[in-house]
Amino acid sequence: MIHITVDASYGGRELFDVISAEFPALDAKLLKRAFKDAAIALNGKNARGNEKAAAGDKVDIFLSDEQLGIDLTPDVVYQDENFVIADKPAGLLCVSDTGEKNAVSMVEELMKLRGEYSLEALMVPYLVYPLEKEASGLLIMAKHEDAYMFLSQAMAQRRLTRHYVCAVKGEAKESAELLAYHTQDRAAKTARILERQTRESRPIVTRYQRLAKGGGMALLRARPVTNCLHQVRAHLAFEGLPVIGDETYGDRKFNAKLRARTIALWLKEIIFEIGTGHEYAYLNGRKFESHVFCFPKCVYDAGLIETVQ
């Protein structure tokens, strides 16, 4: 969600024009649809776009930074000679083969500015784990091969803890540990969750705690204990708790009914539990938090998001 306060210079102009002026890269058709989908609120009430704005009016816009045409450069939460932790906004790719703007290329430019980049010495950004384009939250990148190998092993040994916050459809328990088997369609780059093990599948564990509930939805704090493609989204959907706004594993009819056009998935926190006795021990016990997320308006309307703000 983006929040703006109407400046006195806009007094008397229609709200549609005010938002267009504030976000010149925002497509007019998309803005019209946002008003139609009740994705814009004026002073806490759904707006139509033809309201006359007054100085001091509060406007809430439930669109992603990408849709608004805002710069998608992630904030650097932490960096040293070995690692970069970045806060990725929704709409930004982690990596791209087509030259599209992405988090890895941005960190590469940062390393070049700091004089750290060297392809010959393998001093390049290594993505430790991916995060879906539509999701927001923390990314870790190693700056050289040794640091990458260390954190990859830490991930495999479950010593790098990730906590997501997500809104789901359904009646979630207060807490649960979910067990299943994971396989993936490599061509489609999607996951499939199974009740029974097969030759190609891997066991997975996902834990969650319910933070709030309302409006036929629940807000969860989810931890993927194992590390598989789209694990949180796919596993929760398999258990009858599809993530709001997820068009791959979610309930498309429910999303359409709620006009949920962004995914309610946020990697909020990572904790290093990597032990001591090695050169990266200085990060042991460190916790890092994201402050960038973009959930659909229906999640706010249900009063769920207040528990994490």
Score class of each variant (00 low, 15 high):
Pro125Val: 03
Pro130Lys: 00
Ala176Lys: 02
Ile140Asn: 03
Glu200Tyr: 04
Ser136Trp: 00
Lys58Glu: 13
Asp80Tyr: 12
Arg158Leu: 10
Gln184Ile: 04
Val232Asp: 02
Ala256Leu: 05
Val59Ser: 01
Ala176His: 01
Lys173Trp: 01
His291Lys: 15
Ala237Lys: 00
Pro74Gln: 08
Lys29Glu: 14
Cys228Lys: 13
Asp97Phe: 09
Gly91Gln: 01
Ala135Tyr: 00
Leu15Ala: 00
Ala103Val: 09
Asp17Met: 07
Asp37Gln: 12
Gly245Glu: 03
Asp17Glu: 11
Asn46Gln: 10
Val243Asn: 06
Arg13Ser: 05
Ala38Pro: 01
Arg199Ile: 07
Ala47Thr: 10
Gly115Phe: 11
Leu30Ile: 13
Arg207Trp: 06
Ala86His: 14
Ala154Val: 09
Ser105Tyr: 13
Asp87Cys: 06
Ile61Ser: 04
Cys298Val: 15
Ala21Asp: 15
Glu100Pro: 08
Ala264Trp: 02
Gln209Cys: 06
Arg259Met: 13
Glu51Phe: 12
Thr262Tyr: 02
Gly12His: 01
Asp301Trp: 03
Lys143Pro: 12
Gln184Leu: 11
Glu51Tyr: 12
Phe16Arg: 14
Leu72Cys: 06
Ala154Cys: 14
Tyr208Ile: 08
Met155Asp: 03
Ile40Pro: 00
Tyr300Leu: 07
Ala234His: 02
Leu26Phe: 15
Gln231Asn: 11
Val205Pro: 04
Ala142Trp: 01
Asn255Arg: 06
Leu138Thr: 02
Met149Phe: 08
Glu120Arg: 14
Pro24Phe: 11
Cys298Asn: 08
Arg33Thr: 08
Lys36Cys: 01
Glu100Gln: 14
Arg158Asn: 13
Ala187Tyr: 09
